[in-house]
Amino acid sequence: MPSIFTKIINREVSGHIVAEDDDFIAFLDIQPLVHGHVLVVPKKEVDYIFDLGDELYTGLFKFAKRVAKAIGEKIECKRVGVAVIGLEVPHVHIHLVPLNTMSDINFSKPKLEPSQEELKKVADKIKAVL
């Protein structure tokens, strides 16, 4: 069964996409830790990041770097943090989280619940740089 991320890639489920190329896609987390929290995903559905081939693995991080720089330009933060957890959805993904404090990347804290309009505004800000 396709993951929720594959459904976003295939446009079966809507997502606030900020960047995309032939191999990767980046979209806002709908329950972000902070505003501007983006997920970067390879289009090929692989469950575990260390099962990616070398080319796809390095390509994922190069793509994530481009997206992180755009986040840093448009979302007020000191840094953009990176996390790879991979337990919640069986499809490789990198979390890019705008950071002002260490607790901004604490996955056990309650998630935000922004409206679709708020998500669209954040996505448009980031897309404007890319």
Rank of each mutant, 00 (worst) to 15 (best):
A70D: 07
G86D: 09
P42S: 06
P98W: 04
I94R: 05
Q116F: 10
E76S: 10
V89A: 11
E73R: 15
T101C: 03
F61H: 15
A26P: 04
V129R: 14
L56M: 12
A64T: 07
P114D: 06
S3W: 03
D54G: 09
K120V: 09
L39K: 10
Q116C: 10
G59C: 03
V18E: 03
L60A: 03
K125W: 04
I9V: 15
E55N: 09
K7M: 13
A19I: 01
Q31M: 10
Y48D: 12
A128P: 12
D54V: 05
E76Q: 10
D104E: 09
S14N: 07
I8A: 03
V84Q: 04
G86V: 02
E117T: 15
S3V: 02
K65C: 01
V82Q: 01
F24W: 08
L112W: 12
H37A: 02
H91Y: 12
V41M: 08
L39G: 03
I8V: 14
L99C: 02
F63R: 01
V80D: 03
L60N: 00
D22M: 10
I4E: 14
F107V: 03
A19M: 13
D21C: 02
K127H: 13
I17S: 04
D51N: 11
F27D: 00
M1S: 09
K74R: 15
K74I: 02
I71L: 03
D22L: 09
S108A: 11
V122A: 04
L99N: 00
L39Y: 08
H95Y: 08
Y57I: 00
S14H: 14
A128G: 15
